[in-house]
């Protein structure tokens, strides 16, 4: 299985997104590097709107992840409720 990854700018908003990703993807590895946070997971990773909203305590649109996004690896699937990264092995 290959790893998908998602890197975000290290800022306040991203911290909530990372918390949400950790909750929804228990096996995720989170790596803190200067000014960035890199998350890796085997095969698949999902960022769920509901979980992020719960962590932030306010409404959050999945597309607004673009504001804090640095890079990603994997096939992307995005709709109103989630952003999913995956590899087909």
């Amino acid at each position: 299985m290959s790893k998908v990854y998602l890197a975000l700018q290290d800022n306040e908003e991203s911290h909530y997104i990372v918390e949400a990703v950790e909750e929804d993807n228990p096996a995720v590895t989170v790596i803190y590097q200067p000014a960035m946070i890199r998350m890796e997971n085997e095969g698949q990773m999902v960022v769920r709107r509901e979980t992020v909203e719960e962590k932030m305590g306010r409404d959050w649109e999945v597309q607004s992840i673009h504001v804090n996004l640095i890079t990603l690896g994997g096939n992307v699937e995005e709709d109103d409720d989630a952003l999913t990264l995956s590899w087909n092995d």
């Binding site: 890197a7 700018q9 590097q33 200067p34 000014a35 960035m36 673009h66 504001v67 804090n68 996004l69 640095i70 890079t71 990603l72």
Partner: peptide
């Protein structure tokens, strides 16, 4: 854009890391 820009941050260059990561947010798309 990723390891080099992270390096720019580590070298105190907030201007470069910020345009780098801001550009890279488009690059992800």
């Amino acid at each position: 854009f990723v390891p080099f820009m992270s390096g720019a941050a580590y070298n105190g260059d907030m201007a470069t890391v910020t345009f780098g990561f801001s550009a890279q947010s488009d690059e992800a798309r």
